[in-house]
Amino acid sequence: MGSLLNFLIRYSSWFVFLIYVLLSCMLLFRSNDYQRSVYLTSANSLTAGTYEAVADVKGYFALKSINEGLEESNAALLNEVLNLKDELATLRAEVGDSTYAPRFDYVAAKVINNSTRRPNNYITIQRGSDDGVERGMGVVGNEGIVGIVNAVGSRTARVSSVLNEGQHYSVKLKDTPFVGSLIWKSGDPTVAYMTEVARHAKWHKGDSVVTSGYSTTFPEGIPVGVVVARVKGADDNFFTLRVKLASDFDRLSTVRVIRDELKSELDSLETFDFQENKVIR
């Protein structure tokens, strides 16, 4: 208490000074319209400036979650677009199917590991069986197809990317009936080959290559790449096209796993032995 009193006495003139300054300022800003308006506007711009700076910094930290949110909503929107297309096609065919349900569903997933320089490249994603990911599901990026899920854990899954010598994809030239098989040969991660293209198929440089939709892995029409040149094929009845891949595998950050609601039904149908009347295992 004594030291507090000493402190107060010692610095009394400063306290007196502060009190008078505060009193004067109160008088000044209360009674003078001009000074008050200047004070208020400058105070407001100062506050606004501070808030803006803080928001800028905060926004920078929030970018990651915003990005994830956008990816999720993007997947949902794409899902809706494809389902609406599907529905439209169904309606156009005038099939009054009351049990209609969207066929494809998308799960957004973050890429946590990725390789492009090996003969067989794999991508690890942060979604697993807990999120409904199953082996054999197709995976697409923002630009085009990425690969097929080939191993699933509870929280993560491994995707065999397009850059995998053992993997084949059913593709076709966009807006044509000409299908082929997409393979990749070790080396350039930006180029793949569309093989087994029928000899009479018409193609032009720059034509789009899309998924054919003949499997349950990918819906029809997902971009794969563009034709850059023809390569001489081994078989005279077919030729091979060199395709520049749409996806940039070196910069994959978020992908979407495609879930086909009809997969199990189609799979069991395709393996059904009509003579024995049972599913072949």
Partner: peptide, 11 residues
């Protein structure tokens, strides 16, 4: 001029 001279004088 409320406050003006008071503030200046105190300073």
């Amino acid at each position: 001029t409320p406050g003006m001279n008071a503030l200046a004088c105190t300073l």
